[in-house]
Design a binder for these strands. Structure first.
Lengths: 233, 233
DNA sequence: CAGTGGTCTAGACCACACG
DNA sequence: GTGTGGTCTAGACCACTGA
């Protein structure tokens, strides 16, 4: 059992053509002389880096993130806007629009009471048919209607609000964390539970400071590069 | 095999006193009716959230991050500075200072040639005796000397450069990503390989734009909260 | 249907801490 | 030494895909 399993896999993946299918897990495990569990553990890193793609019932394929979506954090913009800038087509999938009840955290964030109705939109962002982000927006009732969503929703709540122009938007406060993918997010992004994701937990306010949108954005590493310029104290 | 293993563990951990030792993994696995592998998988999330601490040869203990280090990203400041603001004592451990040869990435970042000497400092930041961050700074030769480091190093290269005042510092450009812990980082932070970490990859420039410091900062989730205010485009 | 990845089990051996 | 967590193996069953 070589300790450089990671390196050997890296070579194997780098040598493969994009789109090429790797041997099945049992075969590859035998070929590399490790158990299937060990092989899968080592493959995790490559999956979250966007270098391979595993599809249940189909197989494991080598991919290359053709373009990385890059953006500064100083300005708030939608993934669609960022992608458009580099000419990468993206789409929204698995859109779910529903009214639900505010839990503790949501109520606190939106200045509501626990149990109040809130408007909830979740969806997956697809680039080159690959899920690369999972987004959930929660808004107080009254700002968006399901009808309006059905008509105009392109995948970005921000763009919809901007297009509407009302209410005028203020700033967004964004908290940044690394998390292990929760089960429902892992499922939506076609990754394994526990894989590393970048999480933005953001509060968007109207120009007069009213909480407007509480959003959770999970980003697959490897497809995004966020940066910020920091000035010395 | 209950599907709410996660919830059951959460209750169990929440009910325990801080500092309390959990039953050993074999016992707990039997008690919960799952295999040890499954139990360990479920525990990962709690470890990176800072709710438990596992020590090889000793046991698993319930912890509570007593204070969270919080900071805006607009201003560059050291962990020591952030911690001091909230009155949390931190220390540096496992300090390694050495001269090494620039690899591809380092050379490119620092405007050097592959194989040039560079000055390299790595260390772990400890809060309440718990490793919470792993930092590596790489500088072109000539700015810092081992002697100077030995005399004045408190854990922060930034603070040392600021104290020196020469060269005057410009801005820092920081890229933000989520990564699975590489083996050496996992070892330093006492977490499992593959656990989620927040990674800042930053370039610090002098006031005249010369690359001065290429740094990698790995942060344990649960102990830090970074935020940024984003203005609407 | 057969073949794939997703998950879990039971058991083993190791490295480590501590008495 | 004993008991802990860290890692790995071999094998099983499931859910899913596509012919």
């Amino acid at each position: 059992m070589p300790k450089d399993l990671q390196s050997r896999l890296e070579i194997l993946i780098a040598a493969a053509e994009p789109g090429e299918q790797l041997p099945s897990e049992p075969k590859l495990a035998k070929q590399l002389g490790v158990s299937r569990a060990t092989l899968r553990e080592a493959m995790r890193a490559f999956e979250t880096r966007g270098l391979i793609r595993r599809q249940q019932g189909v197989g494991t394929f080598v991919t290359r993130p053709s373009q990385i979506i890059e953006s500064g954090l100083e300005v708030l913009e939608s993934i669609e806007t960022m992608a458009e800038r580099i000419g990468l087509p993206v789409a929204a999938g698995a859109v779910e629009i529903r009214t639900c009840l505010a839990d503790d955290e949501t109520a606190r964030r939106l200045n509501l009471t626990v149990g109040d109705d809130v408007f909830c939109v979740s969806r997956v962002i697809l680039a080159e048919d690959r899920p690369v982000a999972f987004l959930v927006d929660t808004l107080p009732p009254g700002y968006l209607t399901p009808d309006e969503m059905a008509a105009d929703f392109t995948g970005s709540v921000l763009d919809l609000l901007l297009k509407r122009g009302n209410p005028p938007l203020g700033n967004s406060r964004c908290e940044i964390a690394a998390v292990a993918a929760p089960p429902e997010v892992a499922r939506a992004l076609h990754i394994q539970r526990g894989d590393s994701l970048l999480l933005f937990e953001a509060m968007l306010y109207t120009a007069d400071g009213t909480p407007l949108d509480y959003s959770l954005s999970y980003f697959l590493p490897g497809y995004f590069k966020f940066h910020v310029v920091r000035r010395v104290g």
